[in-house]
């Protein structure tokens, strides 16, 4: 980094002469050291997966979850400083709960991402705080059917309401990624953390924009991608943690839940098998060269 030692990196909320906020960029470095997290937006649901690096053999396997539930229809995973991730989750839960209290309806994934984006951005503005050392991936399924106001009774006309605009679709899968700067975008597939480069390369192969990938296949792809991304971090052991949210007809009925053990193990088995298959080609390793979509600017 060119300007190290010039003093502009010592405090938050101070620009360097060429218009950079170094504290934010250092926060991004913290993210880049964290275990890989990914999210895949499928046609009938969303998957979240994380490479949980085992920091001690004394930790109980399967405990200390890294993916959290925000509201019943929404989950979040993050890479970077774990305590910062925990605080992010706590704030996101408060936002979702306060939305529900005011509007008596679940918050949409987009609105939650917007509020959390605003929250993280505020941590780049003051000298008394530091930016979040995480990039978070928020996944949700916004109800595709009409929801009642929380608590309402009665059911309206038996033939349904009159005057709806036909052919319009509402709700569906949603996936957002929020960076330490507060920047957030909606994604078809999102990856962050140490193995993000190879994870992104794999995600791009899936042609997610066409909206053909099913949730069941998405789970298998997610497991595979985490295993591939782990190649950048091979000396450390890891656990695969996965959650999903399906549509109302799917396995989770619109709720954010852990992927059941049998499905997760099957996905892991397939991932390992595939990885063994092309072990030989997996030698050319890219050094931490920033790719195009990885810059901090808008």
């Amino acid at each position: 980094m060119t300007s190290i030692g010039t003093g502009y990196d010592l405090t938050n909320s101070v620009f360097s002469p060429d218009g950079r906020n170094f504290q934010v960029e250092y926060a991004v470095k913290a993210v880049e050291n964290g275990g890989t997290s990914i999210g895949i937006r499928c046609k009938d649901g969303v998957v979240l997966a994380v490479e949980k690096v085992i920091t001690s053999k004394l930790l109980k396997p399967g405990a200390n979850k890294r993916i959290a539930t925000i509201d019943r229809h929404m989950g979040v995973v993050s890479s970077g400083l774990v305590p910062d991730g925990r605080h992010f989750v706590s704030r996101a839960r408060d936002e979702a709960a306060s939305w529900r209290q005011v509007y008596k309806t679940p918050i949409t994934t987009k609105d939650l991402a917007s509020r959390m984006g605003g929250y993280l951005q505020a941590y780049t503005l003051y000298s008394s705080v530091r930016p979040f050392g995480i990039t978070a991936i928020v996944a949700g399924w916004d109800s595709e059917v009409e929801l009642p106001v929380d608590g309402e009774v009665g059911s309206g006309p038996s033939i349904g309401s009159g005057g709806k605009v036909e052919g319009k679709k509402f709700g569906g899968p949603a996936l957002y990624m929020i960076e330490p700067s507060g920047l957030y975008w909606g994604y078809y597939g999102a990856a962050t953390g140490k193995g993000r480069q190879s994870a992104k390369a794999e995600l791009e192969k899936l042609d997610l924009a066409s909206g053909n990938l099913s949730l069941q296949d998405g789970v298998k792809e997610a497991a595979k991608i985490i295993y591939i991304a782990h190649a950048d971090n091979k000396d450390k052991e890891f656990e695969l943690e996965m959650t999903w949210i399906s549509n109302l007809d799917g396995p989770t009925k619109g709720r954010h839940e852990e992927v059941p053990k049998d499905i997760l193990e099957e996905a892991e088995r397939l991932a390992k098998k595939e990885l063994e298959g092309d072990e030989d080609e997996e030698e050319t390793k890219e050094e931490d060269k920033p790719a195009d979509g990885d810059k901090m600017e808008e």
Partner: peptide
């Protein structure tokens, strides 16, 4: 658009 007409008491 989404719900058409609705009446609440």
């Amino acid at each position: 658009e989404r719900h058409g007409g609705q009446v609440y008491s």
